[in-house]
Simulated assay, not measured.
Amino acid sequence: MSATTSPGAPSAIGRPSSSPAYRFGHESSGAADEWSVEWKLKRNCSLAPRQLLGFYSVLCGLSLAIASFFWAFGARMVMPFAWVELLAVGAALLAYARHAADSESIALRDDRLTVELASGDRVERVEFQPQWVRVEPQAGDGSLVELSGQGRRVAVGRFVRPELRPQLANELRMALRHSMPGGRDGAR
């Protein structure tokens, strides 16, 4: 089942259907004529930290059971190597789990553009005035998207495939234009 609307027909949130459509972002309108677009860009993880802990527990149990079997039959060097192996795998999985929740959050509201970069336990937050923000590739095709203005710079798009980063940049530009006075059907 499909439905079509004519250009300029009101959408579900009371805006004309000619408003921008976002692939990466989510547009919303709230009370008191508040408009915003949010982008949540996250790492694509195959295992959640809880699943990773379960996997590691099973691996430890299996490896130590095999090492114990050989220990019982006189192969005394198997157990120390099993422990070294489990410690090395545990360190690698810990490094993976620490960055499993890394993300980039970009929020554009009427009066500011906020970018939050979470990497491990460190969170960096940068705020811009939308009318002064420049959106450009950092080095060329497929590179990160750089947001700059008011003496600050931040690179985003780490969790977007390189061939889709230009689309993210265009989406950010479109939203910034849309947030300007008169850019939202004269809503200001």
Results as ranks from 00 to 15, higher is better:
residue 1 M to P: 12
residue 3 A to I: 09
residue 3 A to E: 11
residue 11 S to G: 15
residue 13 I to Q: 10
residue 17 S to D: 10
residue 19 S to L: 10
residue 19 S to N: 13
residue 20 P to R: 05
residue 20 P to W: 10
residue 33 D to H: 11
residue 34 E to A: 13
residue 35 W to Y: 15
residue 35 W to V: 07
residue 37 V to C: 13
residue 39 W to K: 10
residue 41 L to R: 03
residue 42 K to I: 14
residue 44 N to F: 08
residue 45 C to Y: 01
residue 47 L to I: 01
residue 48 A to M: 05
residue 48 A to P: 00
residue 50 R to N: 10
residue 63 S to Y: 06
residue 65 A to W: 07
residue 67 A to L: 09
residue 67 A to H: 11
residue 68 S to A: 14
residue 68 S to P: 05
residue 70 F to R: 01
residue 70 F to Q: 00
residue 73 F to D: 01
residue 74 G to M: 03
residue 75 A to I: 15
residue 77 M to E: 06
residue 79 M to N: 02
residue 82 A to G: 09
residue 82 A to I: 06
residue 85 E to A: 05
residue 86 L to D: 02
residue 89 V to R: 06
residue 90 G to P: 13
residue 91 A to F: 15
residue 92 A to C: 14
residue 93 L to Y: 14
residue 93 L to V: 15
residue 100 A to K: 01
residue 103 S to N: 09
residue 107 A to P: 01
residue 107 A to K: 14
residue 108 L to A: 10
residue 109 R to P: 00
residue 115 V to E: 04
residue 116 E to G: 00
residue 122 R to E: 11
residue 126 V to E: 02
residue 127 E to C: 08
residue 129 Q to R: 13
residue 129 Q to D: 11
residue 133 V to R: 06
residue 137 P to G: 09
residue 138 Q to Y: 00
residue 138 Q to A: 13
residue 138 Q to K: 09
residue 138 Q to D: 06
residue 141 D to K: 02
residue 142 G to I: 14
residue 144 L to C: 03
residue 149 G to L: 10
residue 152 R to L: 07
residue 152 R to W: 04
residue 155 A to T: 08
residue 156 V to K: 03
residue 156 V to M: 05
residue 164 L to P: 00
residue 165 R to V: 04
residue 165 R to D: 06
residue 166 P to F: 12
residue 167 Q to Y: 09
residue 168 L to Y: 15
residue 169 A to R: 10
residue 170 N to T: 11
residue 173 R to S: 07
residue 177 R to M: 03
residue 177 R to Q: 03
residue 179 S to G: 05
residue 180 M to I: 01
residue 181 P to T: 02
residue 187 A to P: 01
